[in-house]
Amino acid sequence: MKNSGTKIAVLSGKGGTGKTLVSVNLASVAEKSIYIDCDVEEPNGHLFFKPKVVCEEDVIVKIPSVNESLCSGCRKCVEFCKYNALAFIKNKPFVFEEICHSCGGCALLCPEKAISEKEKSIGKVQKGISLNVTVNTGILNMGEASGIPIIKKLLNESISKEGLPIFIDCPPGSACIVMESIKDTDYCILVAEPTLFGVHNLNMVYELVRLFDKSYGVVLNKCLDGENPAEKFCKENNIPIIGRIMFDNKLGFLNSDAKIAVRESEKFKQLFSSLLETVMKEVQHETVVNS
């Protein structure tokens, strides 16, 4: 099969549009797959999968540690830090650990070698099994500046040896944490709500995937009868619509009970199977075009 190892990211401009719904159900409806929860600030895919955890590992970053007796007070580190994680008060350097983005610049720059790096855990990655799905979850500790090291670790370690499809549940928005999540993907699914606000959010991720030169398609979620501003936006911009999920109380109830719709209902199994088929066709098409 040509689908081997395909990486599919699911993203949206804001939370609550249905990223987790789409990625969890696509992963579940595939014969065998890998699901990665990159929404490390509030991972919720595991609530649906309830995976049996097989391993867990801390994610370590390096942060500066200052030897005050070596410090000459030149302030090069303070001036350099883009995030203002260092201050120099009463002739002593002072580190704000939670603000540090672990770039290592201060330690490199310090002419007195007064700054060394120490290790700090910012969260963990968890691997578990839920029937046909391997569930990888990233969890960022509260108050930490950036989840990017966790996402890097998640994506590096989730390369499928068996060539299974990988579904990446992205963080909401279009900032660097999302960029990191979609960087190496083969295809991006943009989930959109049928409102003007939904259009605004869709536009954010639409701009992002174009900037990254990714293949993409839109899933219109919570569709109602009548006008759908997100659909209109797609048509105006020639954005492919690869699926529609109607607003459905039953789906809402299943979701709020943390049930996976395709594992509970034949109707939803069919819906997501056909969506998966469409996505895989799109990916194959892109692979052919680009090869």
């Binding site: 830090c81 995030y83 203002n84 994680a85 120099f88 704000f96 603000i99 500046a145």
Partner: peptide, 18 residues
């Protein structure tokens, strides 16, 4: 100058005040 900081504006502003 902290106005345009990506983060930690309060820290930088306090540094200036100090």
């Amino acid at each position: 100058r902290a106005v345009v900081s990506q983060g930690g504006a309060g820290i930088r502003a306090s540094q200036v005040i100090a």
